[in-house]
Amino acid sequence: MFAFISLLIFICMAVLMVRLFAGPTLYDRVLALNTFGSCTVLLIGAVGFLFGRPDFLDIALLYALINFVGTIAVLKFFRYRRLGDAPEDAEAIMAPPPEEQKQ
């Protein structure tokens, strides 16, 4: 039973890897990475049941939380180009870049 579901999750992760590497935009990759991380949580739980060691669920819980924080961190980095506190020139960053205004 758990071997079946582990194999299915593994196949789905392999298919998601295609979109992760071939995504045309950054946001496709971030979306595929978030889904890939959720599938990893499932795989950790299923493998823990398969090998009779359900203590792996602690790791799965931690991975679920870190996956969310990582997604938000990647999005924040690519919007503000820094990860620390709020930038002092946030108004200039929120405005559209000059080449968009020229179009």
């Binding site: 946001y27 971030v30 979306l31 978030n34 959720s38 949580v41 739980g45 359900p54 669920l57 602690d58 799965a60 819980l61 679920a64 939380l65 996956n67 969310f68 997604t71 938000i72 999005l75 690519f78 919007r79």
Partner: peptide, 23 residues
């Protein structure tokens, strides 16, 4: 523990999807 994972994933999954869509 599984119920906690379900709870966290049901909170963080739509939030992350919304953040990606908004960005």
């Amino acid at each position: 523990k599984l119920a906690l994972i379900v709870l966290f994933l049901f909170i963080t999954g739509p939030t992350a999807s919304h953040a990606v869509a908004n960005a």
